[in-house]
């Protein structure tokens, strides 16, 4: 499928730029051109597909589904984690969403399941994972994100933390549900395209930088060079990766291309996965916003449980994937 891109990259680098095929610069540049084009084609397709799918699940609909199932907590957690994938989510709406869910009587733990899954399993991360690591790793990422969301939400729910939610949240008195008009199919197809294009415009520079640094590493760092430090045998690698990943918010676009190079250089897959999850799941701006509805103690518990879930997943995959 990607042969034409390889032919183009070979032609551009070796014929047009006139760089020798066996030089380090040549192979790095060729890799950069090929990877960039491939990634952008895949990103375009995947972001568009997910955005279009999401246009069928506005948060108002998600809330209705979850409110209907509030009797069965276990099903609630599973539904919330699944709906987290298909509901459009941006950290700027995290607070209205949280209040809307709690107001509708959706249990706190179930709301957290949603809040963990929604940012972690996102269109940019999936597009890049599929493009750089293949569908297996992309699926493992989705499955572990869902597991962390379900289990994390169940634990948070069991801890009876309602008293650490800011008091005003329970006294909102939301006016009768307004019916927000559902766009037509034509509008959905078009809106998804506008959204996809806007998103690509926002992230392309980070992707390019990530791939460029990856390209440099590809040319100069031999495969396996980092295995000694961040391979499976270093018991602290996952923990350190998660601690580095948590503050690196919002830049999944630049981080994932780098991580794909790191795994080639010997960083264990589980360590790489947990690093990416830490980058996407816990972002500083989202935490600052959530502070408006969660008291500091609850926010700290939330971050700790998600963090531990990610660390555990990292070790699990280092253990399973040979």
């Amino acid at each position: 499928m990607f042969t034409p891109i390889q032919i183009f990259a070979d032609w551009l680098v070796y014929n047009i730029f006139g760089i020798a095929q066996d030089s380090k610069l040549g192979s790095a540049l060729n890799f950069f051109v090929f990877d960039s084009i491939k990634i952008f084609i895949l990103l375009l397709i995947i972001i568009y597909a997910i955005t279009f799918l999401r246009s069928f699940f506005p948060p108002e609909k998600t809330r209705k589904i979850l409110a209907k199932n509030k009797g069965n907590i276990f099903i609630g957690h599973i539904l919330a984690a699944l709906l987290g994938i298909v509901t459009p989510f941006c950290s700027c709406s995290a607070v209205p969403l949280f209040i809307g869910f709690v107001e509708a009587g959706i249990p706190l733990g179930v709301t957290f399941s949603y809040l963990i899954a929604a940012p972690m399993v996102n269109e940019v991360a999936l597009g890049l994972l599929y493009g750089l690591f293949g569908w297996k790793i992309a699926l493992i990422y989705i499955a572990s994100g869902e597991m962390i969301a379900i289990v994390g939400g169940i634990i948070l729910g069991k801890m009876k933390l309602e008293k650490y939610v800011e008091g005003y949240v329970y006294k909102m008195n939301v006016k009768a549900d307004q019916d927000i008009p559902d766009p037509s199919m034509k509008e959905k197809l078009l809106d998804s395209w506008v959204f996809t294009w806007d998103l690509i415009k926002k992230i392309w520079i980070y992707v390019i930088i990530g791939i460029a640094i990856g390209g440099v590493m590809h040319g100069w760092i031999p495969a396996g060079a980092l295995a000694e430090y961040a391979g499976k045998d270093n018991p602290f690698a996952v923990l350190i990766a998660v601690l580095i990943g948590i503050p690196l918010y919002s830049n999944a676009a630049g981080v994932i291309p780098l991580v794909s190079e790191l795994t080639r250089a010997g960083v264990a897959t589980g360590t790489a996965l947990s690093f990416m999850m830490a980058v996407t799941a816990l972002s500083l701006p989202e935490m600052i916003l959530l502070r408006r509805v969660l008291k500091p103690k609850l926010l700290a518990i939330f971050i700790t449980i998600v963090g531990l879930g990610i660390v555990f997943t990292g070790y699990l995959f280092n253990f399973i994937i040979a």
């Binding site: 506005p58 948060p59 108002e60 809330r63 459009p88 941006c90 709406s93 607070v95 209205p96 969403l97 209040i99 809307g100 107001e103 005003y168 909102m172 008195n173 939301v174 006016k175 009768a176 549900d177 307004q178 927000i180 408006r292």
Partner: peptide, 11 residues
């Protein structure tokens, strides 16, 4: 935010 949420809006 409370005023926004009162309209039933979540996004």
């Amino acid at each position: 935010i409370p005023s926004i949420v009162r309209y039933g809006v979540m996004s």
